[in-house]
Design a protein around this nucleic acid. Structure first.
Length: 570
RNA sequence: UGGGGCGUCGACAAACGGCAAGUCAGGAGAUUUUGGAUCUCCCAUUUGGAGGUUCGAAUCCUCCCGCCCCAGCCA
């Protein structure tokens, strides 16, 4: 292979896998197909919010266009006015933009082509390849046959062309009621592929369309509208999910019969399945409708609006979509991979702070009362250019409740009676006394001593401690609400009927834990909505864009830090 | 029982007849002022199964097994 030849995968980051669609496109280019053009499209129906599965498709379509210097259209597949609403259009656009993609001037609607679709249908009728069928929906189902038995031809199948033309025009004129007539393609009622058994092309729907208003009362079906829309827009590669595989012969049939100039190639890939979540509009609707989550943008939802609010970055999602690959095998991606992608990015980019989620009061007995000092803390050990900050220290502090145990097990390295640990960037302290509530026995306070010689966290005599704790000075701390999010479902596969007969039964009761009075470092108080941080030793957090206010900061946990102690505990 | 797809590590996923990549997860160790990060090593003598072709098979052929999708006037 010559050096200047385009190899599949040349344009991707090294180390990332190529995939069969990238290869097809590369081969097509090499063969000189489509005059070297690569035109893809992302065709959502505006009837719901986008989720991670759509992100896979968006990254694929827009990514391919970017990679091969082509273009990608955003086209709303709005052929069913009874299910679609304008409100979704804006959210879909926002999500695509948020992911980092730009359709430029190429925003389209299938409804833009209603006129053309009508004319093409007339063409087909004239060719004797389409007819008006007056069977009822129930009759049509009967005539269709079953998976194993062939269908029967409709008694209307051989209506004369003139009659079809007349009827179709009157359907369009609104002379008939819904359900009385449809326009069907005349293909083959005995085909093993049910999609080819004279599929419906147009149905009567006396519904107002969000863009065309009441101009139409017949609306095209997906199979007919989609291939024609693709063709009109000059799409070269029409990428869709596996369930449309047996629609491909129909896609090709329409374009062949219509003798259009552009005949895009439909390519199917497997949709994304993710562990510990669900990815269906119907289930989302139920979760939102029944109040199991706060809304479509609940940070536990796999909707793009949800993960955005949770604090995931667009680049982490794009990276995830690249890593999961594109193939035809039904796959089930481990949620841990998504978490890995966001941790990897935020480790490099998120400034570190100390925040005590479940505060336990610590009094440093030998630290002068009323004294305060500022200690220097590194903002990001992975990136020196992020500098450092000063953190106030004083006699009364908060540490994490779980960082102290009165009777520590063997593997517990943190604070315990008589034990010395380091307070990050501050001093070594030793626990000398445990104060308990006399009635409940609950530990309310720890008394410790500090070693002034260890200022900053290093001991001049080189003695070691086994743990470093994060902390916050009580008089300087700011109160915050912290929301700890976990998998929405407790089961790895809530969509599996056997595992979860009713998917709601598999909801994770601990998917949200609200900590109303966490104590955060004062420097964190002015954080802007959407800003992301690492709370040292805890995880990555983001200021909730909806509920956080200046007087009441709210932080969402995006993802926890990996915790090897948690594994030891188990 | 019709048609269309798909079977490679726990999970993704390469390999296009010439010694089964990589990533996540998992394990061991080093290092560490985050039990984080980083680094090193381990983790498929075998590709759903059985035959066959070939010097050579995950790749080609045959049969079998398993899983997914399709009977909307939804997309």
């Amino acid at each position: 292979m010559k050096d200047n030849e385009l190899k599949s995968g040349d344009l991707q980051e090294p180390g990332l896998p190529s995939h069969f669609i990238r290869e097809i496109v590369t081969e097509d280019l090499k063969a000189g197909k489509n005059n070297g053009a690569v035109v893809t499209r992302f065709p959502p129906e505006p009837n719901g919010y986008l989720h991670l599965g759509h992100a896979k498709s968006i990254c694929l379509n827009f990514g391919l266009a970017e990679e091969f210097k082509g273009r990608c259209h955003l086209r709303f597949d709005d052929t069913n006015p009874t299910k679609e609403e304008v409100e979704y259009i804006d959210s879909i656009k926002e999500d695509v933009r948020w992911l980092g993609f730009d359709w430029g001037d190429h925003l389209y609607f299938a409804s833009d082509y209603f006129g053309k679709l009508y004319e093409y249908a007339v063409q087909l009728i004239k060719k004797g390849k389409a007819y008006v069928c007056s069977l009822s929906a129930a009759e049509m189902r009967e005539y269709r046959g079953t998976l194993t038995e062939p269908g029967k031809e409709s008694p209307y199948r051989n209506r004369p062309v003139e009659e079809n033309l007349d009827l179709f025009e009157r359907m369009k004129a609104g002379e008939f009621e819904e359900g009385t007539h449809v326009l069907r393609a005349k293909i083959d009622m005995t085909s093993g592929n049910l999609n080819m058994r004279d599929p419906v092309m147009f149905r009567i729907l006396k519904a107002e369309h969000h863009r065309t208003g009441n101009a139409w009362c017949i609306y095209p079906m997906y199979d007919y509208a989609h291939c024609v829309s693709d063709s009109v827009e000059g799409i070269t590669h029409s990428i869709c999910t596996l369930e449309f595989e047996d629609h491909r012969p129909l896609y090709d049939w329409f374009l062949d019969e219509l003798e259009v100039a552009c005949h895009p190639q439909q390519i199917e890939f497997a949709r994304l399945n993710l562990s510990y979540t669900v990815m269906s509009k119907r289930k989302f609707l139920k979760l939102v409708g029944e109040g199991h989550v706060s809304g479509w943008d609940d940070p536990r939802m796999p909707t793009l609006s949800g993960i955005r609010r949770r604090g995931y970055t667009p680049s982490s999602i794009r990276n995830f979509c690249e890593r999961i690959g594109v193939a035809k095998r039904n796959s089930f991606v481990d949620f841990a991979l998504l978490e890995h992608c966001i941790r990897e990015e935020l480790n490099r980019t998120a400034p570190r702070f100390m925040a005590v989620l479940r505060p336990l009061k610590v009094v440093i007995l030998n630290y002068p009362e009323g004294q305060t000092e500022e200690l220097s803390a590194v903002n990001n050990p992975e990136d020196a250019s992020m500098g450092s900050r000063m953190v106030p220290f004083s006699r009364v502090l908060y540490i994490e409740e779980e960082d102290f145990q009165e009777n520590p097990p063997k593997q517990f390295f943190r604070l315990a009676p008589g034990r010395e640990v380091r307070l990050r960037y501050a001093y070594f302290i030793t626990c000398v006394h445990v104060v308990k509530d006399e009635t409940t026995g609950r530990i309310t306070e720890l008394h410790c001593t500090y070693d002034p010689a260890t200022r900053g966290g290093d001991a001049p005599d080189n003695r070691k401690v086994k743990a470093t704790l994060h902390w916050v000075s009580a008089q300087h701390a700011v109160d915050a609400e912290v929301r700890l999010y976990d998998h929405l479902f407790a089961s790895p596969n809530p969509a599996d009927e056997k595992e979860c007969p009713d998917f709601l039964g598999c909801l994770n009761p601990k998917s949200l834990e609200v900590l109303p009075s966490a104590k955060i470092e004062p420097g964190l108080a002015r954080a802007a909505k959407g800003e992301r941080f690492q709370f040292e030793r805890q995880g990555y957090f983001c200021v909730d864009p909806v509920d956080s206010t200046e007087g009441h900061p709210v932080f969402n946990r995006i993802v926890s830090l990996k915790d090897s102690y948690a594994k030891i505990k188990k």
